[in-house]
Design a protein around this nucleic acid. Sequence first.
DNA 1: CTGTTAGCGCATTCAC
DNA 2: GTGAATGCGCTAACAG
Lengths: 389, 389
Amino acid sequence: MTPAPGPAPLSWWVVRFEIYEIPFGKVSCVPLGGQVASPITFPQPGGDVTSNESGSRAATLSDVAKRAGVSIATASKALNNRDDVAVATRQRVVQAADELSFTPNAMAKGLLAGRTGTVGLLTSDLEGRFMIPILMGAEDAFGAGQINVFLCDARGDAIREQHHLKALLSRRVDGIIVVGRATDPRPSLGQSLPVPVVYAYAPSDDPRDLSLTPDNYSGGRLAVEHLLACGRTRIAHITGDPSYAAAQDRLAGARAGLEGAGLSLVGEPMFSEWSEHWGRDAAAMLLGQHPDVDAIFCGSDQIARGVLDTARDLGRRVPDDLAVIGYDNWEVLATNSRPELTSIDANLQMLGRLAAQRVFDAIDGVDIGSGEHHSPVRLVIRGSTIPRR
Amino acid sequence: MTPAPGPAPLSWWVVRFEIYEIPFGKVSCVPLGGQVASPITFPQPGGDVTSNESGSRAATLSDVAKRAGVSIATASKALNNRDDVAVATRQRVVQAADELSFTPNAMAKGLLAGRTGTVGLLTSDLEGRFMIPILMGAEDAFGAGQINVFLCDARGDAIREQHHLKALLSRRVDGIIVVGRATDPRPSLGQSLPVPVVYAYAPSDDPRDLSLTPDNYSGGRLAVEHLLACGRTRIAHITGDPSYAAAQDRLAGARAGLEGAGLSLVGEPMFSEWSEHWGRDAAAMLLGQHPDVDAIFCGSDQIARGVLDTARDLGRRVPDDLAVIGYDNWEVLATNSRPELTSIDANLQMLGRLAAQRVFDAIDGVDIGSGEHHSPVRLVIRGSTIPRR
DNA sequence: CTGTTAGCGCATTCAC
DNA sequence: GTGAATGCGCTAACAG
């Protein structure tokens, strides 16, 4: 009964499964021992060279026409709901198409129409956490409108990006969204492309392009204004790498917010990496040098998590003694901390959706304008700035 | 000089930027006040209806031929490096193509060739953390081989999935990878598709399909065997939702590992949600009821983070008094904890790459087999199980 | 109402 | 060597 005796094999293995009841009435599968069927040495594929065309070749319109006993043109009209076709005929055609599970060839259509109904999503770093919501928003917006998305990850490599761009153009995408991994300006793809381009998150360095990027300046301001509204006056700032525009813009916003209240930051802004570790270390330094700090604006949620850790270690009660606000509203971090973390949300999914909308518009011939547009951010209040009651 | 006076506008705004020096010699852009140029009411696009076809229509082969003063056929041969063309002619054609920045129309090619050089990536939930590495791996593998990827996110909705599937088929993708959000079996797309399908992460419920899924069983076993190797004998298990196959499989593996050493779990496995909160609460209960526990195997890194928190609160030293091991090797969590978290890594990027490879093979006519294949996992040792020295 | 024709952009015969 | 002709699957004009 002991499954898979011996150490776990370091190769892929095939198992049969057994359905069995588990708690809560759900059903699951676990491997059974002794049934390692066809071990496959790991990185190498199987090897048997046999044809694997599961179903047969996809049916074409001419197949349908033949089966329905009509001409290709008539079949086309019938399936496209053109009104100059007899009801009975249409029915025959539709049925034939159904029986053959006919799917019109989008390529052939595109060849005629001159547009493909596809767009390219050129990201510079899929790994990046900011990429995903933008991607989701875009995919969502397009998906709803029958447009399909080519995903291209350039891995932050300009060569690869150029390569992907070429591929996208050769596929005749109707538009391109370029998603960067930071809010720092990135090189433009140029003005001579035959399709509209929208830059999301990372703006293009060419103002003739249209760029949508989060409003970090307002985000910093919003954060500080919230802290001020909570009655805090001795506010410090711990943030990440100063070479990031995000760090600078948020700081500038924060300073503006403070100035508006006739205040300024406690101490100098503390820059280093965007990590929890840095948050912990920086908070320890800060609270040592400026024990009277009553609020910390953190440049990221990760940093804020570190700050919360140190506050707890030093016996500072959050939010009573010390208010902490993060940035990015990374839910898994923000909602699992003690207390839960107030943060600034950049609405990235909406940003992606909007970028898609802009590409849509451009495809439809609408002038989408140019320049760097800053998308609004929002404050998400949780327990680290206002005590729960 | 104060940028953007007044509260942050709740609409998009266009700014001019000013280049200025920031610390560390880098350059950044910040918005300047008073230059809000063309405010765009937020969710609505611009509206001016003018043509925006940036460059002109993409050049065709016939354009190139005309410019080079040859026939279309010759131009084609020249550009495709066929050898029956004069050197001088080829040169003229290539130059003409270059001047027109000619890009062959992949659709037209595909129409001829009967294959498109595209594959569909059908995910059920882009948001999911496990999706991304798989996606990256697949995109990577394909990208290298000149194949482009259609990304489709079904948002966990069967209807939407069917919709996307149809779209993919109509685009005549050469293959499809289906990525699920959990390791529980999911409904098969069926056997009658005209293209090969590979299931990644979530296996298909039909054994005739090929599925690649992480070996959670071995992962659980590996985790426990590591704890045993560290000299721990009183091992408890805190994990997530028991309705997940992942929870059950890892548990089964852990039990097998313990049995191999003539041991068993301390207490019952503790199930609830896959959250840091639960990790904290569960650890508190566990350490209250079984103070002699010397190691905890956690079903996820999030849970492990919670466990570490509680251990610290209760004054348990990790790893000396208590070893903690997580699951998933979510770097941002694992490397930022105190101490850093030992964890099991499912090699998801490799899984994605392999799935892509299998689709490749199938396209090439290689038999890729069927059934549920379990991909090897690996142990990543950090400070939460072995003290750093 | 239905079928014939033309052509989207390209690669591939096959004549010249 | 080169170019005219054919067809991939489909839709949009027409002609019947």
